[in-house]
Amino acid sequence: MYKRIISLSVFILFFSITGCQDILECVINRKPILSDNTLSAAFVNQNYSELITAEIQNEPRDNAYYYDYFLTGDLPPGIDVFFDFRDVIIEGIPLERGRYRFTIHLSVEQIDNYCENDLNDCDGLCEERTARTYILTVN
């Protein structure tokens, strides 16, 4: 009996310190994700355009976040990347053949003033950052 009371006390103490909601967020698995689509092949001296999208998984209000991106790796000469809210746009006219590997890094943050309305659930995400590596082949 004594062991059961201690276990229950530790359990209650743990949730009161860490906050039950934080643990539930990880069970619900709310986190930013980038689309896992394979990029279509590009061709030298021909227009190329591809779209990668971002969202907050299991979050119906994913427009209520700031999306901040940066890119590491190589893009083909002639190809540019543009970040437009929840879209990553890759476009241009590639000038050289090859296989180009790059990673898009994404971090999100809830928009200020979003939590002022008591009707909104403003608990944090399980994760606030993600990254995905893509390969663009130019023929």
Rank of each mutant, 00 (worst) to 15 (best):
D22I: 06
E127T: 07
P76L: 09
P32G: 01
I79T: 07
L71F: 02
L71I: 09
V88H: 01
V138W: 12
G78P: 07
F83C: 07
I23S: 05
F102R: 05
D68H: 03
V44T: 10
R61G: 02
T137A: 09
D84N: 15
T18W: 13
I28W: 00
S9K: 08
N117W: 03
D84G: 08
T137G: 06
C115W: 05
V138G: 10
G124N: 08
E91Y: 12
I90T: 02
E59A: 03
Q57Y: 11
I28V: 09
V108H: 08
F14N: 06
T72N: 06
S49P: 00
N37I: 08
V10A: 13
I56E: 00
L125C: 05
A42Q: 08
C126Y: 03
D62S: 02
N29Q: 11
T38G: 02
V88Y: 03
L39I: 08
N139H: 14
N47M: 03
I52Y: 05
V44M: 06
L136N: 08
V44Y: 05
F11E: 02
F83Y: 15
F82N: 14
T18G: 06
D118L: 10
E128T: 15
S40L: 13
E96N: 13
T133Q: 13
F43C: 04
R30I: 04
I79E: 09
I23D: 00
I104H: 01
I17Y: 07
T38H: 06
E109F: 10
D87W: 04
L106Q: 03
T72V: 04
D84Q: 15
I5H: 13
Y2T: 12
F82T: 15
R132M: 11
A42H: 11
Y2S: 14
Y2E: 13
L13T: 13
D36V: 03
D112Y: 14
T137E: 13
F70G: 02
L24W: 05
S107N: 12
A42K: 13
P77I: 04
F70T: 05
D36M: 07
G124Y: 00
C115F: 06
D22T: 09
Y65P: 00
F102N: 03
R99G: 06
Y69S: 01
R30H: 03
E55I: 07
Y2R: 14
R4D: 15
T18P: 02
L125D: 03
Y2G: 10
